[in-house]
Nucleic acid binder design. Structure first.
Length: 549
RNA sequence: GCGGGCGUAACUCAGUGGUAGAGUGACAGCCUUCCAAGCUGUACGUCAGGGGUUCGAAUCCCCUCGCCCGCUCCA
């Protein structure tokens, strides 16, 4: 299978700017790395995407599709704060996980994670205590097996490390035979302890050059944004901006259960901004430091969790297809076992082939089976029970009811990136067709398009503008809550069509001479340029029907 | 974080030491009965920012910021 040539990202970015979809944040001050703003059309488009998610996930979940047990899917919304108690992030593991200590090699200017450095250590002798043992050489590898494999396979790596020859290796024992110029000897392979890197960085050889003295001490890189509550800048007042919306849901799980008559299985949805201090913001809005998520946490009985996982994975894929990403550029990718988070039983990504990832793919949404990891963590850290009493489970009682069962629900998490979704829809919709009068246009799904329709008088005279004005007012009343309804009497009709094509407006109504005599208008389709003539009083119903699809 | 490329009007770009330009777009008017048509006119620039060299800098030098690409990273 051949991959079609990727669309020009430069052209897409130029269109986004030109038509007011996406601007660089703080542009007049030179911009700020990793932040982007949405212009008028972009803001409306993203709202449409968010509304579509809300509609299909919360208000009418899964288009009415039944769950694995044949039951109706039930979800409720929640809106939680960007700033939560700092302990939320301790419990979730983000504070630890987001603060990987890194080591730089000052000579080569390269950087690696301090906990991913392995070394070849001499066997301890009676003359040296364990604290004095220094690695003879190092390689970047987080496991003993990986280190041995790298040394065995990579000749240039051996050269950098000063290894002249490799003998036998015993991965299970963590031992390898190597000759550093003093004859073949046995070496213990082990992770370089953090304490050694911290206190004796100068004694640790660089994994890049084999030379000692060029490594820095491990340094913290905070991937979470923080600020202070209250006016006093005191470490005790330090709080974090959330890196995901999900934790807000978990910490309110009990409240939702206790106050909203929900029964497991059910979902809680939450959309909103999250913040990650990305090391390398890149690729337009794809990896932004401030971004918007649409996350659902679906709580279910552990025994049903696998079925719900498959259910949500499939539905989410179908959903992206339904709003305009149908085709080879969209895939569902099941994570390999070694790719999974420590707590996850299964994860799938919905991925899109962006022009800048092609022929590879970039993640739009992750659907994760999180087990009961989060509720367990919060139960432990907060001391507040998070278990659920299910009255419909357990042994039958004589009176016909059930004894009930107490358990920590398992969680399926479909977590979508709205900015990435919007970007994918723009990339997918961006089309150049030189055979058209307006070669450049944006094929946005009617549900997502920020401009829903335009009404044009063919010429700006003979009473046509007045008729257009009236139809515009009518359509605005009925559909204005979904997006813009435009009208424009100026300039040539071709130019006005072209403008709408470029902005992704799917439908144009045109008032012409026949409207005045026969009460009909033409309805032009953006993608084909084809027109059909309909009665003017049918226009609202016709548009309503087309916007539903 | 490293390496490379780039930054001039809303967009695409020309301008390599001597008065900041073109096309497109936008806006106004005329014209116009279906696809960026035509005519007339108007507005639009901290030449990414700062510093330096020079009589004079968009142009040469230094620093910073931003964007793109390749590494790296992506809990």
């Amino acid at each position: 299978m051949t991959t079609p040539a990727p669309k020009s990202m430069d052209a897409i970015m130029a269109l986004c700017k030109r038509r007011g979809f996406i601007y660089q944040a703080s542009e007049i001050y030179g911009g700020i790395n990793g932040f982007w703003d949405y212009g008028p059309l972009g803001a409306q488009m993203k709202k449409n995407l968010r509304d579509a998610w809300w509609q299909d996930m919360i208000l009418s979940p899964c288009w009415g599709r039944k769950g694995p047990g044949g039951q109706r899917v039930h979800c409720v919304p929640l809106e939680t704060c960007i700033i939560q108690h700092p302990k939320v992030w301790e419990a979730s593991g983000h504070i630890a996980g987001f603060n990987d200590p890194m080591v730089d090699d000052k000579e080569t200017k390269q950087r690696f994670r301090a906990d991913q450095l392995s070394g070849l250590f001499p066997e301890p002798s009676i003359h040296s205590s364990l604290e004095q043992i220094r690695p003879q050489c190092t390689v970047i590898a987080s496991t003993v097996g990986e280190a041995i494999e790298l040394l065995s396979a990579d000749k240039s790596l051996r050269k950098a490390a000063g290894v002249r020859a490799i003998g036998q290796s015993f991965p299970d024992a963590g031992v390898i035979e190597a000759d550093f110029g003093t004859g073949m000897a046995r070496w213990n392979v082990a992770l370089v302890p953090m304490s050694l890197l911290r206190d004796h960085a100068r004694d640790v050889p660089s994994p890049y050059t084999g030379k000692k003295g060029s490594l820095t001490e491990p340094r913290q890189f905070s991937l979470m944004f923080f600020t202070y509550t209250g006016a006093v800048l005191d470490e005790d007042n330090k709080v974090y901006l959330r890196p995901e919306t999900a934790q807000g849901i978990f910490v309110q799980f009990k409240n939702v259960v206790d106050t909203s008559r929900v029964k497991v299985p059910f979902g809680i949805g939450n959309t909103g901004r999250s913040f990650r201090n990305e090391i390398t913001p890149r690729n337009f809005t794809f990896r932004s430091r401030e971004f918007e998520q649409a996350e659902l946490e679906f709580f279910c009985h552990p025994s049903e969790s696998q079925d719900w996982y498959a259910f949500w994975r499939d539905f989410r894929m179908d959903w992206w297809k339904a709003i305009g990403l149908a085709g080879d550029n969209l895939i569902l990718r099941e994570h390999e076992k070694d790719e999974l988070s420590h707590y996850s039983i299964g994860t799938s990504d919905v991925e899109y082939r962006f022009p800048f990832t092609s022929p590879g793919f970039g993640e739009l949404e992750g659907i994760a089976h999180r087990g009961c990891f989060d509720l367990t963590q919060h139960q432990q850290h907060s001391g507040v029970k998070q278990d659920y009493f299910d009255q419909e489970r357990g042994d039958p009682l004589p009176n016909g009811s059930r004894k009930g069962e107490r358990y920590l629900p398992h969680v399926i998490e479909p977590a979508a990136g709205l900015d990435r979704g919007a970007l994918a829809l723009i990339c997918e919709g961006y089309t150049r067709d030189e055979s058209r009068p307006s070669p450049e246009f944006l094929k946005l799904h009617p549900r997502i398009a920020p401009i829903k329709a335009a009404v044009f008088p063919l010429v700006n005279k003979d009473g046509m503008p007045e008729v257009a004005e009236k139809l515009h007012a009518d359509l605005s009343r009925r559909f204005g809550h979904l997006g813009f309804i435009e009208t424009d009497p100026k300039q040539s009709i071709g130019k006005r069509y072209a403008r709408m094509d470029e902005a992704g407006c799917p439908f144009c109504f045109t008032i012409d001479g026949d409207t005045l005599t026969g009460q009909t208008v033409t309805l032009r389709d953006r993608d084909t340029g084809q027109q059909q003539r309909i009665a003017i009083d049918q226009a609202p119903a016709m548009l309503g029907e087309k916007l539903q699809r």
